[in-house]
Design a binder for these strands. Structure first.
Lengths: 328, 328
DNA sequence: CTGTTAGCGCGTTCAC
DNA sequence: GTGAACGCGCTAACAG
């Protein structure tokens, strides 16, 4: 194995100079710099990362801790995080928590053991409820989930406003009797519920909700029971992509025709939402952008740890499709 | 920071004994063992991974190199890999290549620099064409993509047979004029094409294919042109989930009714395939299982590097839905 | 601007 | 069964 002293020998300089060149320190003269780089190329020298990390106490690694990478939102976020990290010569290590506080704790310990430069975290409701960024030895940026008043960096959707606009859109189209199916154990779900509630109150309409665990099956079950009610509601809103999937399955099972029998709308512009007849009206989250913003915020935090915490609130886009068309 | 000598001091033993206990070596006496573990707990000692890795020359890290984590197949695989790795106290680092040979090379170099224990790789057609596992300093398990004759561990679908069965299913239902839209730059796509071709030849039917880049847009475009043909084909088969998405979009744009105007079938049982009226017939890949098998094969290879290479070929399940119903 | 040198924290030989 | 001591490959501090 070729190591730094081999490079130093070939270039006729000390190991310190080699180290300086590789670190990009501007204190080396151009001639030495050039000779070192030649020697590096000549020998195909690869620095030993373990040794570097031991000595420098830095890992150049970012942790990504989410509930489930299979959630399309997090899939997209992870892709963005990996892209930016790769461009910054940093690694990403991934951890799935399944919303389980114990597993969250293990993952965060793992990140501490790895001495990660920072973590992008999507916390469970429980963890979020008593979250303090200072409890960990590394900076953390929250993504998707955040509660007002917490002193932490975060990137999130304007959940309240998005749900408000989506609800008003349905009301405008004449759908007044709406059931809001939402993730009861999710910060996001609750915030979207508040936006929905505000819109209904503004129009003096009764609020009718159905809290579910944020799982496709549960949402399907809940939707099936809603669809058996008499009178049938005029519309259903789903507070997340997974729940929208469950609701749509229920609609299909009961052979309901959208929007003739019932209107539908929800969150997350997944590829299939335009395929389901007659197209599903959704709030599209800028998911890739959220991931990119999260890691860039994290990199800034790493660079300047003492700046004030920031919350970046992005706007969702209302995509109107046939599923919420006006009642005739 | 608490380190190994602190533990040794508190337990009243040498650092060597602490190291032996933590490594699980069976040469330590029960009393010392117990006292060491108590001291570890007492001090909440966490071994420094960088130091351990430098010394032991092992990283306990698995690399996952795929074209795009957003491809639902790889999303599921990555979840499986992460689950198993977590249970084995190993880390996963992720790399997206976008099917770009240069990026593949960078990712594999990155893995070498990280001194990963092994890599799970889904190679581009180009990389696969001259792939030799010995070229890298670590074991590699191929997933999803493989070419007969290559001396490498691999986990894949029985592509030929699956495409054969899917095609025969359509033929049985009276769809004789079939267009096969496939990923021309993909090993998987080509193998599935061969299976399709064999089925068509067996029934003495003409083979009609449409090679596309494995991107949703391209598949949509190709399908649109197919749908303009006269006479209209009786069925379309898509060789992957992404292509099936594009084809379905084209069908929707042209207001075709499935299967009255044209029948459809494809690969990958994504959640939305049952939502699109009247449900899409697909070959379901055991994706999670493939990921699990891949990392378990890798762990075995790491444990016993000299055993013969193995290829694990899993069977896809034909899920019949309305989109391929018999012609009336 | 450059070189010398002392550790970073751990695993592992080798004596005992 | 146990401990002392060396060195993994590198960075940073200091001296020149």
């Amino acid at each position: 194995m070729v190591q730094i002293k081999d490079v130093a020998k070939l270039a006729g300089v000390s190991v310190a100079s080699v180290s300086r060149v590789l670190a990009g320190l501007p204190v080396v003269s151009e001639p030495t710099r050039k000779r070192v780089l030649e020697a590096v190329k000549e020998l195909d020298y690869r620095p030993d990362l373990a040794a570097r990390r031991l000595r420098s106490r830095r890992s150049d690694t970012i942790g990504l801790v989410v509930s489930d990478i299979r959630n399309p939102f997090f899939t997209e976020v992870s892709r963005a995080v990996e892209d930016v990290a790769f461009n910054h010569q940093m690694r990403v290590i991934l951890c799935n928590t399944d919303e389980d506080p114990d597993k969250e704790a293990s993952c965060l310990e793992l990140m501490r053991d790895e001495k990660v430069s920072g973590v992008i975290l999507s916390p469970s409701l429980k963890l979020l409820s008593h979250f303090t960024p200072g409890d960990y030895g590394f900076p953390i940026v929250l993504v998707d989930r955040y509660e007002r008043g917490i002193e932490a960096d975060a990137v999130l959707l304007e959940n309240f406003d998005a749900a408000f606009r989506l609800t008003e859109h349905l009301i405008t189209n004449g759908h007044l009797h709406i059931v809001f199916v939402y993730g009861a154990e999710s910060a996001t779900g609750r915030q979207r519920l508040e936006g929905h509630r505000a819109a209904m109150l503004k129009h003096q309409l009764p609020v009718c909700t159905e809290g579910v665990k944020p799982v496709e099956d549960q949402a399907r079950e809940a939707a099936l029971s809603v669809l058996k009610r008499s009178p049938l509601p005029q519309a259903v809103i789903a507070s997340s992509g997974l729940i929208l999937l469950g609701v749509t399955e229920a609609l299909r099972e009961t052979r309901m025709v959208i929007p003739r029998d019932i209107a539908v709308a929800g969150f997350d512009n997944m590829p299939w939402t335009q395929l389901v007849q007659p197209g599903l009206t959704v709030i599209a989250q800028p998911t890739y952008e959220m991931g990119r913003e999260a890691i860039e915020l994290l990199l800034q935090r790493i660079a300047t740890p003492d700046k004030a915490m920031r919350q970046l609130v992005l706007r969702g886009e209302l995509i109107e499709r046939g599923s919420s068309a006006a009642r005739s």
